[in-house]
Design a protein around this nucleic acid. Structure first.
Lengths: 159, 159
DNA sequence: ATTGAAATCGGTTCGGC
DNA sequence: GCCGAACCGATTTCAAT
């Protein structure tokens, strides 16, 4: 994992469909060398896949909420986690420190659907409470901040 | 935006590097027809880009936290938002309902770095308080749940 | 680990339906 | 809007270093 790998990762986080030829131009290697390096990043799990970024509002998922899920006295976290996995509207799921053992992100078409999903979450065995925060605007998400500084602006000359 | 478009979106959310030939096989159209449809999805903003999915722990970002950012009496949300944008460790930023006007996701190499970033967030002009929840485990993130049910299991025959 | 060449396969355009 | 063909460029493999 050297500087070239980091630049490849940055390039593929910015454009997951960049061609090997394009990546080769960026890092200054042949496309076959890039092919091999990317294959290694994939098989080693550093790059686990590629995803199209889709605007949720344009596919009818206009409502987003962050929901804290608090287990009761005898709530089993492992079972709760499995139940959360089974709810398709739950897009992300974090196990966190605190009384709320989980924080999940829910994406639904409408507040009516949110209502239904929250009911389902509260109905999960072992869940005592949920606490919902409605998202008013997603300013940015999954922003890729570069690992490798790159050529960038040269440091000031100190005379 | 018909069922074919939705299946293309699903396929590209599952594999952002799927070739047009591959997509054509999935939806049962020619690759040129797929090319045209995907181009339209891109230019209409439904698909805004493609990203490699990278394992944060394997690139040295082992600590994740969710941070609520609460403005003071005279805090300007627009200015705070701009300041949050400028913090590279902030990977996602949501404007939310409630006293905490923003919830951000922070990704850093260590708890020391988290400490530094939280200091920077609290130092933003107009910010009164932050409330930090440390992520113990990311069970899943940005999970793409299909829009289109697909062929799936055929409905039971009703005699 | 990288190269350059060779062969294959996919991307892209276009005429026609 | 979709197809099919043709062209071109990229992917992928491989021997050599």
């Amino acid at each position: 994992m050297d500087a070239v790998d980091r630049r490849l990762i940055d390039a593929l986080r910015a454009n997951g469909r960049a061609s090997y030829a394009e990546l080769a131009r960026i890092v200054g290697l042949s496309s076959s060398a890039v092919h091999e390096r990317v294959a290694k990043l994939e098989s080693s799990g550093v790059i686990s896949g590629y995803r199209a970024v889709v605007d949720p509002t344009l596919i009818g998922l206009g409502v987003t909420a962050l929901v804290g899920v608090e287990p009761g006295e005898n709530g089993n976290d492992t079972l709760i986690a499995a139940s959360l996995d089974a709810v398709p509207e739950v897009e992300s799921c974090y196990a966190v420190a605190g009384a709320e053992a989980f924080i999940v992100k829910v994406r639904v078409p409408s507040v009516d659907d949110l209502h239904l999903v929250l009911g389902r979450l509260r109905g999960i065995d072992g869940v005592a409470r949920t606490r919902t925060t409605v998202v008013l605007a997603t300013r940015f998400e999954m922003r890729p901040h570069p690992l490798e500084p790159g050529p960038g602006v040269p440091a000031e000359d100190v005379p």
